[in-house]
Amino acid sequence: MSVTTRAEARTEPNQEQEIRTTKPTTSDKVVGGVSHVVLVIWSIVVILPLLWTVLSSFKTTAEIFKSPFGLPANWNFDNYVKAWVGNNFGPMFLNTVIVVGCALILVMLLGAMCAYVLARFSIPGSRIIYYLMLAGLTFPVFLAIVPLFFILQGMQLLNTLPGLIITYVAFALPFTVFFLFSFFKSLPYEIQEAAYVDGAGEWRTFFQVMLPMARPGLAAVAIMNFLGLWNQFLLPIALNTSQPNYVLSQGMAAFASAAGYQVDFGALFAAAMITIVPVLIVYILFQRQLQGSVSQGTSK
């Protein structure tokens, strides 16, 4: 009995200490309140323009100017039909999906392989290669437009979708390597050594062991690359002047500028929604992959 009472006496202070440490202080409440207020304001800033764009995409131009914040009188998809068929957004959407999809697959594959080798192996010149990748992040893309133009022209890839894909891969590769380098660096070496002991080679270790462990990092950088490539405007406008190969960002600019002062704002908002919706869908699909951590992945 005495041993039990001593144990209880020792555990009670620890329980009280845990309760005291978990009890929020006044400063914690202030920080939490300010954080919630900032998040609410930020949500309003993001949601309200998107909601206004959705409502305006179902209105006519006259209705937008007459009642810009009201509900549409008729909920129809005429504006979407005009944008998709009348302004040739269907082929441009397909071109964008092909260019961004192929570029994203290539940049994720090449970036993950490059970051893995630079982070996990000691090879001559690895630090120089890594710093050159970092230098690529600091180089303004508009300074490379003229050299890229002549390079693609010499390769017979100017104004073509493959040329745009290669350019997108080169544009997104430095950031991908930089982001995944520290991620692969933090993975435990014990699991890699265990794969070697089980007889796995380098390729099998990378694709079946290390790459699944890096899934949260891959999902995060994939979302960032997708957003950057989908909304890219400068590179296609300079390197892809052939109208049959236009992407959505070029189509939006051409649609707004060609109409002059007689813009069909309802169709323009519908075109904007056509451009925005795929980004939202991809983010919703990938956000599930962002949950979890490296420790959870290794425990499985």
Rank of each mutant, 00 (worst) to 15 (best):
M1Y: 12
S2H: 11
T5K: 13
E12I: 12
E18Q: 13
I19V: 09
T21F: 14
P24K: 11
T25R: 08
V38N: 08
V40T: 12
S43G: 12
V45T: 09
I47W: 04
L48C: 09
W52N: 03
S56C: 07
S56D: 01
T60V: 08
K66L: 06
S67V: 04
G86Q: 14
F89C: 06
G90D: 13
M92G: 01
I98Y: 08
L104A: 10
V107M: 03
L109M: 13
G111S: 10
F121N: 09
S122P: 04
G125F: 09
Y130V: 08
P147Y: 13
Q153T: 14
T160G: 06
L161R: 12
G163P: 10
I166L: 15
F171Q: 01
T176Y: 01
F181T: 03
F183N: 00
F183D: 00
E202S: 06
R204S: 11
F206Y: 03
V209D: 02
M210E: 00
G217E: 00
A219G: 04
L234T: 13
P236V: 04
A238G: 02
A238L: 07
L239D: 01
N240D: 10
S242P: 03
S242D: 10
Q243N: 05
Q243V: 10
Y246T: 06
Y246N: 09
M252P: 01
A259D: 04
Y261N: 11
Q262L: 14
F265S: 04
L268R: 02
V282G: 03
L285G: 12
L290F: 11
Q291H: 12
Q296K: 08
G297R: 02
G297D: 00
T298C: 11
